[in-house]
């Protein structure tokens, strides 16, 4: 019977992944539609391409040559076809291929997001478990109160406060930029390998991750308290298992199932909302690039950024669902059972 289950779970997994992939494509197409609409409704692309002395006839000619008179569906189709190969055209402002621009900025954003995501997860889970197990002692009270500040202070203010304390007053850490970077491979430039790069990463990573950390911590605490009240925890205690085994073996694993989802989704928003942190710390990532292109109505960059963030969310969602599958054995079989 066991082998039957395993085979079922395998084919079931495949069907599940395929279904999710189809859903992902639909999401991406919808976002592409919004991105495409930007071109048509945020100013006239011709106006931003030509000089003032261009005649109306020349403009009409250009419009025709660029295919802007084609039916909407044809234009959208072309946009999607090009976008799927990574071609978002040329930046109006910088006169460089958009994809190149974004790829050159992406490592900075990803490094920042990953470091703050890991910080948020590690400290969030750690503090969450601690405050759940040591309810009522002064330290967990302090942590809970401090977390309220983390939740309620806006990101830019935290950034500015950190700069003020650690860069201006104490002069321990740099206040802006990425420090020295090292080229790794063809297009990845990392700041993690140099001392100044790591030093520059600390303040922005804390700024970006603090809110997520408090969120994860409060979630872990609430889930943990919930799990500690369940019958299987009582039964585990009644069997004389050590506190360590009960708390970390039995309770924490059950707590992590919902926490993984939230954390995964948070990683998406860390990347998406790095805009503010990157602006405060002048971090040379895609967020800063996006803000600048908004200022100059650089539509191709804006559209590409939109699609990139959507892609990040879709991929993370997919990974989270697969993780869920890996952690919770019930999901693997309940689907199989439902079909029998």
């Amino acid at each position: 019977m066991l082998t039957v289950y395993a085979a079922d779970a395998g084919s079931d997994m495949l069907a599940f992944i395929l279904r999710r992939l189809v859903q992902s494509v639909i999401v991406m197409l919808t976002v592409a539609l919004v991105a495409f609409a930007l071109f048509r409704f945020v100013g006239d692309p011709i106006a931003s391409m030509v000089g003032q002395e261009t005649t109306l006839a020349e403009r009409a000619e250009l419009r025709d040559a660029l295919g802007l008179n084609d039916p909407f569906v044809v234009q959208f189709g072309k946009f999607v076809a090009r976008a799927s190969t990574g071609d978002f055209g040329i930046s109006y402002r910088l006169q460089q291929p958009v994809m190149e621009l974004i790829l050159s900025r992406l490592p900075a954003t990803l490094e920042l997001a990953l470091v703050s995501g890991v910080l948020a997860f590690v400290f969030g889970v750690g503090f969450g478990v601690y405050t759940a197990l040591r309810r009522g002692n002064w330290l967990s009270g302090t942590i809970m109160t401090a977390s309220l500040i983390g939740v309620s202070l806006p990101t830019f203010l935290i950034g500015v406060l950190l700069i003020w304390v650690f860069a201006v007053e104490l002069q321990w850490l740099p206040s802006f930029g990425r420090g020295e970077v090292v080229q790794v491979g063809n297009w990845w430039r990392t700041g993690l390998l140099t001392e100044s790069g790591r030093a520059s990463l600390i303040l922005p990573a804390i700024t970006l991750g603090l809110y997520q950390m408090t969120l994860i911590m409060r979630l872990v605490r609430a889930e943990m308290l919930e799990v500690l009240r369940t019958d299987y925890i009582k039964f585990a205690r009644a069997r004389g298992l050590s506190n360590r085994a009960v708390h970390f073996g039995h309770a924490l694993k059950n707590t992590l199932v919902p926490v993984i989802t939230i954390t995964g989704l948070q990683l998406g928003s860390i990347i998406a909302f790095s805009i503010i942190t990157e602006t405060v710390f002048q971090w040379p990532g895609v967020g800063a690039l996006f803000i600048n292109s908004v200022r100059f109505v650089d539509v191709p960059v804006m559209a590409a950024y939109l699609m990139l963030i959507a892609l990040v969310f879709v991929v993370i969602n997919l990974v989270v669902d697969l993780l869920y599958y890996a952690v919770d054995p019930r999901l693997r079989v309940d689907r199989a059972n439902a079909r029998h």
Partner: peptide, 30 residues
């Protein structure tokens, strides 16, 4: 003493077992 000298069986078998571990894991651990 719990488990070793005094054992306990609870009311609801559906919620008494940790859903994320196999029966073997829970028995061997105990």
């Amino acid at each position: 003493i719990r488990g070793r000298r005094i054992g306990m069986v609870f009311q609801d078998p559906l919620t008494s077992l940790n859903p994320l571990y196999t029966v073997a894991e829970q028995l061997i651990e105990t």
